[in-house]
Structure formats: structure tokens, C-alpha cells
Design a binder for these strands. Structure first.
Lengths: 83, 83
DNA sequence: TCCATTATTGTCATATTTGACAAGTCAAGA
DNA sequence: TCTTGACTTGTCAAATATGACAATAATGGA
């Protein structure tokens, strides 16, 4: 069964990125809106790179995003959402 | 209520670390056992630093750990487990 | 106590994330 | 077409995660 699927680094980064983007759009937020809701400084550059799966974000960065999106961190880290 | 709790960076790193350590011990594994089960190279130094909340791990590192521990990534990222 | 296993910590070099800014792309409207 | 907003991408410097190794501490058993 699909438990045998080997997940490459780029695969999981893409899924995490899709999760962030999907949730952000569900909340009706732009990337600028999102960074505006994050307490510490963060940049749309980084949001974009995460959403595109181009960067291997740290857990604290994903946590700050989860706070701004008002969802649990574990929702962003849910790999079962892969399309 | 406790939604007002402000989570500092060090707080969430500690919780993530506690999750890793708790699950690892539940599985009866040592840090050496754990790194032995991880496909790509990883070091017990890093496992220890993550478990102690001394490093802000990337999501891919936590993913590799979750694979070795045979739990979903989202379980490691569950911040509700805070003691 | 002695010993072995396990875990922590320090340091180093390398790689990469991050924030910042600029430039470029893209789509939707006026 | 022109403009505006939203997003992407390149580059840079600074900070830091990572892997590696060594040294130390902590733990438990004989």
C-alpha cells in the first residue's frame, strides 16, 4: 500500500507549502496580510519560498505562520493532505 | 483563557523536543537506535539538541525523525501535549 | 566501586534559512 | 494599454541548523 511511498525532501516541503497556501487562501489572506499578522518580523519572500517548497523552514517559522493563520501547527504539518 | 498564553520560541522548541523524547522512549529506542533507523545521515548530537530544545530544527529533520519513530509528523508537532 | 551504556555539551566547518531589498512576472480591471 | 495588486525570484549579509568528532556527564548494573 502507499505506506511504501518514499517521501523525498522536496516532496514534504511541497506538501507543507501547499498546506500553508491552502489555509491562507481559506482565510482570505494575502501574503502581505499574513506577515502583517505575525508578531516577529517575517518577510513575504520567505512565505513565498515556503509555499513554493523552495525552502526547508524551521519549526519556529512554521509555528509563527500557524499563529497568524490561527490554526494548530500540527495542521500545517499534516502530510496526509497531499493531493 | 489559556489561549492568551504567549508561546516563546524556546517554549515551542522545548515542547517539540519533549514530544520527540517521549515518543522515542515509548518505542524503547536510544538516540543511537533512532539515528540508525534514519535513512539519510543524522547525528545523535542533533537529536540531543532537539530533545533539549536547544536547536530550532527544520521541518525536514523532524520529518526524518518521525519516519524513524513511525509516527506522523503532525504528532511531533502537536503542541497540545505541553505538560 | 567499577564499568558500560547513554546522553549532553563544546567546537568546528559547511550548508542553508532568514530578513531585506530590488527586480521581474502575472492577472484583473479601468 | 496602463495601472495596480499579488506573487515570484535573485542576491546579499547575518544568523543558525547540521554533521562530525571529542570530551564530559549521567545513569544503571554487576
Amino acid at each position: 500500500m502507499s505506506n511504501m511511498t518514499i517521501m523525498e525532501k522536496s516532496d514534504i516541503l511541497k506538501i507543507i507549502g501547499q498546506n500553508v497556501k491552502r489555509i491562507r487562501l481559506e482565510k482570505g489572506l494575502t501574503q502581505v496580510d499574513l506577515v502583517g499578522k505575525i508578531k516577529a518580523q517575517i518577510d513575504t519572500t520567505n512565505i513565498s519560498r515556503i509555499e513554493k517548497g523552495r525552502t526547508n523552514a524551521t519549526i519556529h517559522t512554521l509555528f509563527r505562520i500557524s499563529q497568524a493563520l490561527e490554526v494548530p501547527l500540527s495542521e500545517i504539518c499534516d502530510l496526509k493532505n497531499s493531493i
